[in-house]
Design a protein around this nucleic acid. Sequence first.
DNA 1: GATATGACCGCAA
DNA 2: TTTGCGGCCATAT
Length: 121
Amino acid sequence: MATSRPKRQKSARRGAEPANAEGGAERIWQVVAMIPHGRVASYGQVSELAGLPRGARLVGRVLSRLPTGSRLPWHRVITASGRIAFPPRTQAHRRQAALLREEGIIVRAGKVSLSRYGWDP
DNA sequence: GATATGACCGCAA
DNA sequence: TTTGCGGCCATAT
């Protein structure tokens, strides 16, 4: 039964349209936007839900390219180890930790308990 | 077209 | 716990 993987096709871009800088990003935004309040999801989880089995880096890349005022709860996305992706002691790191705490999430040493706050879709 | 980089993941030592 | 390696996809040069 033709089980073979759907083999991701190489974006069929049309010449009449400017390269879509988004691509699968759109999908990622949707997934991130549906993360419930007080919960967190890992990059790999988001990528998987978005249809990218191994697109964890894509998620990180897409989030880093988020436009200002995207209203996206990017702070609810953390690494698979439950740690904040930003290096400690950085402004971005502190900001994400603060946002998570505002949602009732306990952040300790830049880490979050996935067993406790991990999003289970 | 090739190379290097990136808010990563999983495994092994 | 930390470090190293390969893999994945997209962007920039």
